[in-house]
Simulated assay, not measured.
Amino acid sequence: MGGFLGFAWNQWTFKPKPLAKDRSLEGTTVLITGGNVGLGLEAAKEIVSHRPNTLILAVRDVEKGQVAKDAIAKESTPPDVNLEVWELDYDSYDSITAFGSRVQALPRLDYVLLNAGLKQMQYTTAKLGHETNLQINHLGTSLVSLQVLPALIKTAKATSKPSRLTIVSSEGHFWIPFKERTAPNILARMDEKDAFGRQMSRYYTTKLLNVLWARELASKVEKRDVVVNAVNPGFCYSGLHRHEKTGIIKLFLWAFGWTTQQGGYCLVDALVQHGDSHGAYLSEQKVVPPSKFVLSEEGKIAQKKIWKETFEIFRKEAPKANISELESNV
């Protein structure tokens, strides 16, 4: 894992598979962020085929979410599956907080797939002022993970079995130098334009943050309550690549890419299978070691530092998010 030859071999030789047809999700509530396009949409379609009670698509654009809901419904959605579209903008702490309040009102929440993200190839700032990849892929994802956690824990205690929280990462977390790790404040350094790097390096760095966040969150949450993991969906055809202008990605997709549907299979497999895992990194539909940096002492130090810095940002910038209360859950 981690090198180009390993990447190419896995993409050529492994073909992701859907869940077994008899795997039932009856009675459960599943929530997918970014479930209106790409891998998230394919994951949603796969989930629906296993008949949960409720599937919630959490999306930035509700109109586009409704289009996705209609598309799913047309593909023979069982009549007993309740499909809902909820608004959620990772670039608005007010939106995330309102979403969190809505989640807490759910009678149950069994599975959450945090799939929403982007790959911005040039330096830009989000509405909240942070570098865009950092805001959406790390800060937004992390705050949403904290918002859904109480509902997942409540459901686990009511059902006497663990709920599941899966964060979408990338094999690209193996491939970046992560020079920001030596800065006095890692996240502040990542906001600076001269630290952005070239092409996909910033995207991959935020995917490394996803792995570190998932591992630290898992270390603070009991496995009997919520199984927390990170997943690499593989290199797939997806709208994620829309900002890449050189044509290199198209060439690599032609040579190595999995279909969007196959990527969706990987996400669903990570979300509902592998119940004996916790704080794990999944790739090719199995638990594998993350990068050497993640497992190193330096990586463990960076993991705790990023956790602390992230909470400092939330306390300062998201006062309505009840950070102290959320922190008490971990």
Rank of each mutant, 00 (worst) to 15 (best):
K157L: 12
F174S: 02
K179Q: 10
F178C: 07
K245T: 15
F196C: 01
I153C: 12
L165M: 12
F235R: 08
K161I: 09
A214D: 01
V211A: 03
R224V: 13
S219K: 14
Q147Y: 01
Y237P: 01
V211S: 04
A156D: 01
S163A: 15
I167E: 05
V228F: 06
I186K: 00
K154F: 06
D191Y: 06
P177D: 07
G197E: 02
V231Y: 02
A158I: 05
S201Y: 09
A188F: 00
L217G: 02
Y237C: 09
N232R: 12
A158R: 07
L165H: 05
E216S: 01
G247V: 14
A151R: 04
K161W: 03
K207Q: 11
L152V: 08
I176V: 15
R164L: 08
V226P: 03
A156N: 02
S170Y: 05
V221S: 02
D194Y: 13
F196Y: 15
T166F: 04
T205H: 09
E180L: 09
L187Y: 03
A151E: 03
L187S: 06
K245H: 12
F174V: 06
R189I: 00
A188W: 00
L209M: 12
C236S: 11
K179L: 13
L149N: 06
Q147F: 03
R181L: 05
G234I: 00
I167Q: 10
S163L: 08
D225L: 14
G239Q: 12
V211R: 02
G247D: 11
S160L: 14
S163M: 09
W213K: 04
F196T: 04
L187I: 11
S160M: 13
S238W: 08
R189V: 04
K207F: 01
P184R: 01
T246F: 15
V211W: 05
R164W: 11
